[in-house]
Amino acid sequence: MLGDLDVEVGMTVREIGTGTGYNAGLLAHRLGDANVTTVEVDGGVAARARRVLRDAGLRPRVLHADGAEESPPAERYDRLIATCSVLRVPGAWIRQCRPGGVIVTPVSTLFGDGAIARLVVGGTARPRARSRVLPRSCGSGGRGTGPRPWTTICRVSGRVALRASPRRSTRRRSGAAG
C-alpha cells in the first residue's frame, strides 16, 4: 500500500490506524517527522507506538483520535493512507487532502470481501475523488477473475459509496460449443 501511495520528499501524509507505528516510521524516515501525522483510535496502542517510534529516533505526530473525524481546517495533506478497512470512505478524508491528493485504503463490503482502493482528490469547489481498485486487491474471486473495476464519485456533503461497474465474463457458459 505504501508503494501505491506514491510519496515524494516534501509531501505531507496522514495515516489512519497507527497500530505498531511501522508505516509511520517508514514514512517519517523518508519524509521527515514534521511531514507525518498518524491517528489511532485506541489510546494504549497510540502511546505504545509513540514510545517505539521515539526509541527508534523518530518523532512523527501520533494522535489518539478517531481517524474518520475532521482534522483542523488548516491541516491538508498530500497523501492519506488508512490501514483499517472501511465500508465507505469518510468525506472527512477527502476534505483533508489537497487537490491532487491521493487516498489509499482497504475497502470491504458487507459480504466480507474487499479490495485496496486508490482515490485521487479533485480540485473543485465541491471536492470529489475518483477511485479504482488496485491490481493486487484481495477478495474471493476465483482463478482468472481479477479485480472488479470500481467507479466511485465521492461527494463531501453526502455519503460516499463504491459502485461496481458491470463485469464482462470471460468464462464459457456451460453447454457452450467449443
Rank of each mutant, 00 (worst) to 15 (best):
Val120Ile: 14
Ala46Val: 02
Asn35Cys: 02
Thr12Asp: 01
Tyr22Ala: 12
Val102Leu: 14
Val41Arg: 15
Gly10Met: 09
Gly25Glu: 04
Gly100Ser: 08
Gly32Val: 11
Glu15Val: 00
Thr20Asp: 03
Val13Ile: 04
Pro149Tyr: 11
Gly19Asn: 06
Gly112Ser: 06
Gly57Phe: 04
Cys84Met: 08
Arg48Cys: 07
Gly141Ser: 12
Ala47Val: 10
Gly158Cys: 06
Ala47Met: 11
Glu40Ile: 06
Val160Trp: 00
Arg95Leu: 05
Thr12Asn: 00
Leu63Tyr: 07
Ala28Leu: 03
Arg168Met: 03
Asp66Tyr: 07
Arg50His: 09
Ala176Gln: 13
Ala82Asn: 05
Arg126Leu: 04
Val52Arg: 13
Thr38Asn: 15
Glu75Val: 02
Gly3Met: 02
Gly123Asn: 11
Arg118Leu: 03
Ala161Asn: 14
Thr151Cys: 07
Glu75Pro: 02
Val121Leu: 06
Val86Gln: 05
Arg173Gln: 09
Gly43Gln: 12
Leu31Glu: 08
Tyr77Val: 00
Arg173Glu: 08
Arg30His: 06
Arg48Ile: 11
Ile103Arg: 05
Gly112Ile: 14
Leu134Phe: 03
Arg76Val: 05
Ala24Leu: 04
Ala34Gln: 15
Arg132Gln: 10
Arg132Ser: 06
Glu70Ile: 03
Ile16Val: 15
Ala49Trp: 02
Gly19Trp: 06
Ile116Arg: 03
Met11Trp: 02
Ile16Ser: 10
Tyr22Trp: 08
Ala47Gly: 07
Gly144His: 02
Thr18Met: 12
Asn23Phe: 09
His29Ser: 15
Thr145Gly: 12
Gln96Trp: 09
Ser169Glu: 10
Thr151Leu: 11
Ser174Met: 08
Gly91Phe: 00
Gly44Asn: 14
Arg132Pro: 00
Gly158Arg: 14
Asp6His: 10
Glu69Pro: 01
Gly101Thr: 11
Gly101Ile: 07
Gly146Arg: 03
Asp113Glu: 15
Gly44His: 06
Gly146Tyr: 01
His29Val: 04
Gly19Phe: 05
Leu162Ile: 13
Arg132Leu: 09
Leu53Asp: 13
Trp93Val: 00
Ser131Val: 14
Gly123His: 03
Glu8Ala: 15
Asp78Tyr: 08
Leu5Gly: 06
Gly178Pro: 00
Asp113Gln: 08
Val86Asn: 01
Thr145Arg: 14
Gly139Met: 10
Leu5Met: 11
Cys138Pro: 00
Thr151Ser: 14
Gly19Cys: 08
Ala115Thr: 09
Gly19Arg: 11
Ala115Pro: 07
Arg88Gly: 02
Val107Asp: 00
Glu75Cys: 04
Asn23Gly: 01
Arg167Gln: 12
Ser174Pro: 10
Ala117Ser: 11
Ala164Lys: 13
